[in-house]
Design a protein around this nucleic acid. Sequence first.
DNA 1: TCCAATGTTTCGCC
DNA 2: GGGCGAAACATTGG
Length: 246
Amino acid sequence: MPEGPTILLLSEELKQFEGNKITGVRGNSKAGIEITKDAVIAKIQNWGKQLLISLDNGYFIAIHLMLFGRYAVNEKKPDRNERLGIDTPTGEFNFYACSVKIQKGQPEDFYDWSVDVLSDRWDPREARKKILKLGNEMICDTLLSQDVFSGVGNVIKNEVLFRQKVHPRSKTGNIDDEILDKLIKDTRDFSFQFLEWKRVDVLKANLKVHNKKTCPRCGVPILVEVMGKTKRKAHFCTNCQVQYLI
DNA sequence: TCCAATGTTTCGCC
DNA sequence: GGGCGAAACATTGG
């Protein structure tokens, strides 16, 4: 389910538990979750697609919902195996079918918020530098690189490329500087648009190319092709999106 | 009924 | 050792 904006919403929802003591821990996670028992939840953060729960005992929990992950706040999803469930005096939250890691140290030691497109520390110049460093790869791969655009997933990738009229197979080294800068900027802008649509549950209705049949600009059929080293599906309009090859 | 889908890591092979 | 592909994990709406 999740790209960065979804995790940001989850993070917002869990802020109510900051300052709470963990009175109970359950779940089939093999990450060593017992160590969280009796600790106090110091801080809830999100970095890209990761949810980070800092504790007052020197550890933090990193949760990634992957493709199928689910969660429930102050309720349980019936007939599901709990991966991690946390009880506090004022309520509980539960995770299913996700990746759970227990890390020693601070999230700041592990994650760089200047590459998180939803962070107020996001730095587009950093993104540009990293793109150049990566060499001449397809933009569809670059946009999915969590080291460059943390939080961007396949939906944001497809929509931003359509908005900026860039063909997913374009090579980064061949895209005009000006276009590339606009593309970088729009990953953040559109991620916030995604967030607001998601917040009021109108995301799907507002997508322009992802899982759409025809181009809303010109009416030409939208193509779907697996491409790049990431082997993900690109949804795009061959008429509106310019392919930068040379 | 079957399949794809907003994802990432790990393993084995060359 | 790097790069690549397959496998693994796990869920459910269409």
